[in-house]
Amino acid sequence: MRGNLQAFFKTIIVQMKLSIARPMFQFVIWVSPFFYATITYFVYGGQSPERIFQYVVLGSGFMGLWTSIVYSSATDINRERYYGTLENIFVAPVSFAYIIMGKIVGNTIWGFISMLLSFIYLRFVFNLEYPIVEPLLIGLALLIVVIAISVFAFVMALVFTLSKQAEVLMNFIEYPIFLICGFLFPIAILPTCLQPLSAILPPTWAINLLRVVTNDASTTAQILQAFLILLATTLIYVGISVVVYMAVDRKARMDGKLGVY
């Protein structure tokens, strides 16, 4: 267990260094937040400060976070396959799950850095006013959001492990999640047939939690409800990830095609 944890933390550091060495990831972390924030601000420019904070600041920040997941965590397994190192990691004495989770957490930390950059940019370039929030509350909310997003990315990474079309899928899943999870508008305006899909995706509840805890008008009951929904969704995804992990592990060993690119 201690060895696994040590590998987990070391993987976070190594992954953060490896990810940011890639030009595409550099774009995702250092450049894309400014484009997302500017475009969203131009669209929402004439709206109320509350709406601008909810959809421009949080929404564009979350777009940056999600893009960092799409172009890193979702396809890191495929990248290892391309490098020819996937089988080595898979059969190493340290659990494969700890390595993958370490990679995902490392990438998610970068995602939050890009989100932070977006917040700073909008605050100082467009002089946006941010609400004063309880530090402990927002800290706890961010921690749960990190866990929720990481668990969701873990499930995606496992599913992508079995696909030979991971790179194609990577390019496809960015905007559908922006759309379905309501990053820039409420999910209530989506067609009715899409709303159940929104409800089963953790990013929907993650951004909802941040919106609720940063809204002055939110009641304690609403805040508690937002926390509970995200926690419950995350727990369900933890269960799904265990099942998918076991299935991937079994299939990889039976087929012996893990490294086939």
Binding site: V43, Y175, L184, F185, P186, I189
Partner: peptide, 10 residues
């Protein structure tokens, strides 16, 4: 679709 929904809402 994403951007059209966004501008339609705003």
């Amino acid at each position: 679709i994403f951007f059209a929904m966004l501008v339609n809402f705003v």
